[in-house]
């Protein structure tokens, strides 16, 4: 790697950490995407993971995804919990046989020496009920702290993955707190400068955490949210119907916009949940409603070019 400015050292700056990871996975051959432009609960929701994990085509991508978990808001008062944080997401389909080594290489790239730090793969079966997805893998621990999730996708949108994709999700703030050795996320050095030039994570995000916590827990209009959920659900189904293949063997013509509506419904559900207006029994039915949207989108995606369908084959 060419010499970096010292402030880009992943041990000194948050953005340096992100750029180092991007660089590492770009060198491996991933397409480096930018964050998806919608509110999602995790990097997995990005269509580059959820949908691209389906079908037979090769797909290697990496990207940062801002992730929103309304319930985790703490008004900026908790040093570890945020309602908005960054995930770094890597998806490799099919998973290469040395994926663990590649992952450890990425840790080495950000300065984690496995002969100084205790790195461990601890059982974690991943499941996303809203996405109808599950996989087996681990929480990756560094000195007892979970810094990443490592999953071999077995099923997504209720569809068997063939081939299996490997997914790595780095919790960037946690990882940065670890390599920068700070105890409070808001104290993270964002730009790696010192003195007047230094910008902290708190300067960038503290106000947002406070405001969104108010929104998530107090101000969000639940009637509007309920309506948004219903509308997104309706629109998703309508788009899937509108774009459906007009003859047997033809491609589906409108999956990605429909999937956006599924993402939207999922986030609205999370907001309603944070507002505490969803009872235990209702909860399950909301999850099922989102899952059936995801399932329908996944099935439609398999009828597209990126999903591996080819109209010529079908016609022949």
């Amino acid at each position: 790697m060419p010499d970096l400015l010292p402030q880009m050292d992943p041990k000194r700056s948050f953005q340096g950490l992100i750029l180092t990871l991007q660089r590492y996975w770009a060198d491996y051959g991933c397409v480096i995407l930018q964050p998806y432009d919608m509110e999602v609960g995790a990097g997995t929701f990005h269509p580059a993971t959820t949908l691209r994990a389906l079908g037979p085509k090769r797909w290697n991508a990496a990207y940062v995804q801002p992730s929103r978990r309304p319930k985790d808001g703490r008004y900026g008062e908790n040093p570890n919990r945020l309602q908005h944080y960054y995930q770094f997401q890597v998806i490799l389909k099919p998973n290469p046989s040395n994926l663990q080594e590649l992952y450890l290489g990425s840790l080495a790239a950000i300065g984690v020496d496995p002969l100084v730090h205790d790195i461990r793969f601890v059982e974690d079966d991943w499941e996303s009920p809203t996405l109808g997805a599950w996989g087996l893998g681990w929480e990756c621990w560094c000195d007892g702290m979970e810094v990443s999730q490592f999953t071999y996708f077995q099923q997504v949108c209720g569809i068997e993955c063939a081939p299996v994709a490997g997914e790595l999700t780095y919790g960037l703030e946690r990882l940065a707190m670890y390599v920068q050795n700070v105890d409070n996320v808001y104290d993270l050095n964002f730009n790696g400068r010192e003195g007047d030039e230094k910008v902290t994570y708190g300067e960038v995000f503290l106000q947002a955490e406070q405001e969104y916590s108010r929104f998530n827990f107090e101000f969000a209009d639940t009637a509007i949210l309920h309506r948004h959920f219903d509308e997104a659900e309706k629109e998703c189904a309508a788009l899937l119907a509108a774009g459906a293949p007009d003859e047997p063997g033809a491609l589906h013509r409108c999956v990605l916009p429909a999937y956006d509506q599924c993402i939207k419904a999922s986030h609205v559900f999370n907001l309603l949940d944070a507002r505490g207006v969803i009872s235990v029994t209702e909860r399950q039915s909301y999850i099922l409603r989102v899952r059936s949207l995801a399932k329908a989108c996944g099935e439609a995606f398999l009828l597209t070019d990126a999903g591996g369908a080819s109209p010529q084959d079908a016609a022949a």
Binding site: D125, Q154, G166
Partner: peptide, 23 residues
């Protein structure tokens, strides 16, 4: 109790399953 498929071989149905990839 729970097993998985992995890698390029998992393209084909009936590919080998193990608790985590067998090396």
């Amino acid at each position: 109790p729970k097993s998985m498929r992995w890698g390029a071989a998992s393209r084909q149905p009936g590919s080998l399953r193990w608790v985590r990839p067998l090396q």
